[in-house]
Design a protein around this nucleic acid. Structure first.
Length: 565
RNA sequence: GGCGCUAUCGUCUAAUGGUUAGGACAGAGCCCUCUCAAGGCUUAAAUACGGGUUCGACUCCCGUUAGCGCUACCA
């Protein structure tokens, strides 16, 4: 039989038309599964309290290399084990695409809530959709999260918790809150959703007599497990959302959703609730796209007899066209790695994202990580969707860029130089650390993104100046003859001057005076000769860093160009 | 279609029912200045619409409109 393993999930062929997918790490064999096919038969399981069977989650420390910046300062999570309720939040991405900025924001809000309240931040990979999971996606998510540099305390993979999911399904089934649906799985968009009305349930399956259901299950007929949504008239499902307030929805508007697929794998709703319960999640903070799903989750928690966590839904991030951010429509601009590669500082990126849908209620914009943690609260989250203001020609929100520039300026010169160094080297310039350290203060206020170092400071690194128009050398209200005179004078001056900022300042100013021109007219040709363009960092500091030899060589070159005119 | 959610400057947002509706980004102008930045000052720019309740409504209620989300054996 053609068994195979994809993404840690082993697919076992049980018969020609039946297969089961389970985590390879469980090491389950086909024979075990064949005997398990009837695991849900009523006589096999003892109805019981889900919690009693799953007393304590077994935390797994974050993978090596994960940033865990705060674990040292946080007290050990003992409260959880002694039964005292402990604040625990989770970020639960599914590895079906790169980490996008909306997910990153959800992670950040969870993290902030945990850190503000001294709680535990959990990363849970929701990988129950085996078909769509990819290794590349998982890598991208970890890469993105690591770059954010926030860290997390515990880490789980949903696919490793299948036993717990099944247990919860079983508990719900035992209590009669779920039933087997033997209807063959429908592919993609079904006809029933195409019909105008909302599909609620298939009464043939919902009302199947127990013995008939058991018989068909025992015979090996595949089935999905569906939640039996209460159908008594006027029944409302309610919960309080920390952001959106009290919520209620009639059960008449909730369909009998699936808990288990016909291959035995849990659906998102089941897996998510089982893990939230099993991992003792106290607060579920997630995107508003889950707001209506929450009614189903409340039903699941109720049926399983476990207390539901607190819910807080976040307004969605939308593109300028008003639609939810997506890779298909908006491309790479929604990927966290795009921001990283463009030269955003993680602290600036976090600062930007936390201000999308949340406000500290005062006038602060630029905030340090600690300031954000201190100010954060769910009360500060607003309810309307938030537009990320990017354009095709300008992929980054101007406020994100401004905040990045602010954070760049706030960085100590040493730290900034350290971050710039690899970028410059990757571009092929063999610059050394001391030189980078000397250049950094000159360009710090002229950069919005880290990669700007390549355009702002290129002339510091390049041996040969890129070609420029000779006319650039001619100062305002001047002519080629004046430019030539200035440069010859400058060459003479620089040959003799002490190469320090103040000395160069004084020397060039007095040179201008001796030529009878304004200082500006003196500086302009020198700047172009040395930098190759009119806009550049402050002149004296630039000359100082460049050194006498390079300056004189470049000025001589400019003189030669002028003489060709 | 059904259900849910939302609505303040272009964008992000602030405003115990009582403010000339505030701040930030982006824009415009001025100042500073060796260019460019940075910085400082100034300026333009909003309560979706219609009804209530109230002495008084951005704020509370109803409706309309618009947008978003969910409506899968995806998450």
């Amino acid at each position: 039989m053609n068994d195979y393993t994809v993404f840690g999930i082993k697919r076992l062929r049980l018969s020609v038309h039946r297969s089961v997918r389970i985590p390879a790490s469980l090491g389950i064999r086909r024979s075990a599964l064949l005997s398990r096919r009837n695991w849900m038969a009523p006589d096999l399981a003892t109805p019981g309290d889900y919690f009693r069977k799953n007393p304590i989650p077994s935390p797994r420390p974050p993978a090596p290399g994960s940033p865990n910046t705060t674990s040292q300062t946080r007290p050990p999570n003992e409260a959880c084990y002694t039964g005292i309720s402990m604040l625990r939040v989770r970020f639960a991405p599914s590895p079906t695409g790169f980490l996008h900025i909306g997910s990153a924001r959800t992670f950040i809000f969870n993290w902030l809530y945990a850190r503000h309240n001294g709680g535990v931040m959990i990363l849970r990979i929701d990988d129950t959709d085996v078909e769509r999971n990819t290794e590349a996606s998982l890598t991208s998510i970890f890469e993105g999260l690591r770059w954010l540099d926030l860290g997390w305390d515990e880490e789980y993979k949903q696919s490793e918790r299948l036993a717990q999911h099944r247990e919860m399904a079983e508990a719900i089934f035992q209590k009669g809150f779920a039933y087997r649906d033997f209807t063959p799985a429908q592919s993609g968009e079904t006809e029933r959703s195409g019909a105008q009305g909302t599909w609620l349930f298939n009464s043939e399956m919902r009302d199947l007599p127990a013995h008939e259901s058991d018989r068909r299950a025992a015979a090996g007929e595949p089935f999905a497990l569906r939640f039996r949504v209460p159908r008594d008239a006027g029944r409302q499902v309610r919960f309080a959302d920390a952001v959106y307030g009290p919520q209620s929805k009639s059960t008449a508007d909730i369909e009998d959703f699936a808990l288990l697929r016909s291959d035995g794998m849990p659906t998102y709703h089941l897996a998510s609730c089982a893990d939230d319960a099993g991992l003792r999640i106290s607060h579920v903070i997630r995107g508003q796209d889950h707001l209506t799903n929450t009614f189903k989750h409340v039903l699941i928690f109720e049926a399983a007899g476990v207390p539901a966590p607190q819910f807080a839904h976040l307004p969605l991030l939308v593109a300028p066209d008003g639609t939810k951010l997506s890779k298909r429509r908006h491309g790479q601009v929604v990927s966290v790695t795009t921001y990283r590669d463009a030269g955003f500082l993680p602290q600036a990126f976090v600062n930007f994202l936390c201000l999308l849908g949340w406000s500290p209620k005062d006038d602060r914009q630029q905030m340090t990580r600690q300031e954000i943690v201190d100010a954060f609260s769910l009360e500060g989250i607003n309810r309307a969707n938030t537009e990320v203001n990017f354009k095709e020609e300008d992929p980054f929100d101007p406020k994100a860029v401004w905040l990045n520039a602010e954070h760049i300026r706030a960085l100590p010169v040493e730290d900034l130089a350290e971050r710039l160094l690899p970028i410059v080297r990757a571009a092929g310039f063999p610059v050394d650390r001391p030189k980078m350290l000397a250049i950094t203060p000159l360009i710090r206020e002229r950069m919005k993104l880290l990669r700007d170092v390549l355009t702002v400071a290129d002339f510091f690194f390049a041996e040969e100046l890129p070609p420029y128009e000779t006319s650039e050398l001619i100062p305002k209200k001047g002519d080629p003859a004046l430019a030539l005179a200035v440069l010859q004078q400058a060459a003479q001056t620089l040959a003799a001057a002490e190469f320090s900022h103040d000395a160069l300042d004084a020397a060039l100013r007095s040179a201008a005076q001796s030529l009878g021109i304004k200082a500006g007219q003196m500086f302009e040709p020198v700047r172009v000769a040395v930098c190759g363009r009119k806009t550049a960092p402050p002149l004296f500091g630039t000359l100082e860093v460049l050194g006498r030899d390079t300056c004189l060589r470049r000025i001589d070159h400019a003189i030669a160009k002028l003489k060709e005119l």
